[in-house]
Design a protein around this nucleic acid. Structure first.
Length: 271
DNA sequence: AATCAGGAGGTGG
DNA sequence: CCACCTCCTGATT
């Protein structure tokens, strides 16, 4: 009762309430999964992994665009010349974000003589930044942390903010600045990050019950591998990763669900 | 065989 | 000091 799904301000609830797979199993996933044409049992992922874009900054950029596209793409349609069918969230491998469409240093220019394209580009960027900031605030509320703290952790997004904003410097500038060189990510954050991007990682880890924060690691080896990459620990494996998860029991960050199942865990404070 | 639980020493920021 | 990492023993699925 008390914790009945707090209002997600700004985000149309219609999408969030859908069972995860309905939305996400559309275009891209179908392609990726269909390519192998394998059933639910497929752990031989080793040859040509199509979705392992796990190398730092780009990950987070992308994850945010994933969210924007999958949960609310209205900002795209709002744009003046934005044709809606042009930007499906199609390449999880790459970093299709802001800098990709801005060659050179056109991001931090003065709002002077802009061509039409540049102008609409900037509008789009502003909208993106606005949406990102809104999402951050929402996430922070739900996580019960301050935006500044969040930004400190997510330095990569701080970079976005820096790069893309000529108008939005309402908050956290100083906070961001001091930590732009990279903060160590916590395991629980990493897991949430993966869970946020079912397009790319849904085959490795996914929500069983997002509202309750219950998730399942579908491919323990892959999740461990990604974690090892992120932390630069080539010898990482699920045995060690799970030990770290178990450290969270005492801290009240992650626990085993009431009905304990293999490879299933639950965030104590779900989003 | 894989996963789970948790003790214990080590490490890097 | 903290958040793991690593290794380990023993239990459970």
């Amino acid at each position: 009762m008390g914790s009945a799904s707090p209002g997600l301000s700004g985000v149309p609830p219609s999408r969030l309430l859908l069972p995860p797979d309905t939305v996400l199993r559309t275009g891209l996933e179908k392609v990726a999964v269909g390519a192998g044409a394998m059933g639910p049992e497929r752990r031989d992922w080793s040859p040509s992994p199509p979705a392992t874009p796990e190398q730092g900054l780009s990950t987070f950029y992308l994850s945010y665009f994933d969210m924007l596209f999958s949960e609310d793409s209205s900002w795209v349609a709002k744009g003046p010349g934005a044709s809606t069918r042009e930007e499906p969230p199609d390449e999880p491998e790459q970093c299709p974000v802001i800098d990709s469409q801005a060659p050179g240093g056109s991001l931090d220019l003065a709002p002077g003589g802009l061509t039409l394209e540049e102008h609409s580009l900037e509008q789009v960027q502003s909208m993106v930044v606005g949406e990102v900031l809104k999402d951050i605030e929402t996430a922070c509320k739900l996580l019960n942390i301050t935006a500044a703290a969040w930004m400190k952790e997510r330095t990569s997004l701080g970079a976005i903010h820096y790069c893309a904003s000529t108008s939005e410097e309402s908050w956290t500038d100083s906070e961001v600045d001091s930590s732009c060189s990279g903060q160590p990510i916590h395991l629980w954050q990493f897991l949430k990050e993966l869970l946020l991007k079912p397009h790319s990682y849904g085959r490795f880890i996914r929500w069983l019950n997002k509202e309750k924060g219950i998730f399942k690691i579908e491919d323990s080896a892959q999740v461990a591998r990604l974690w090892g990459i992120r932390k630069n620990r080539p010898a990482m494996n699920y045995d060690k990763l799970s030990r770290s998860i178990r450290q969270y029991y005492k801290k009240g960050i992650i626990r085993k669900p009431d009905i304990s199942q293999r490879l299933v865990y639950q965030f104590v404070h779900p989003i």
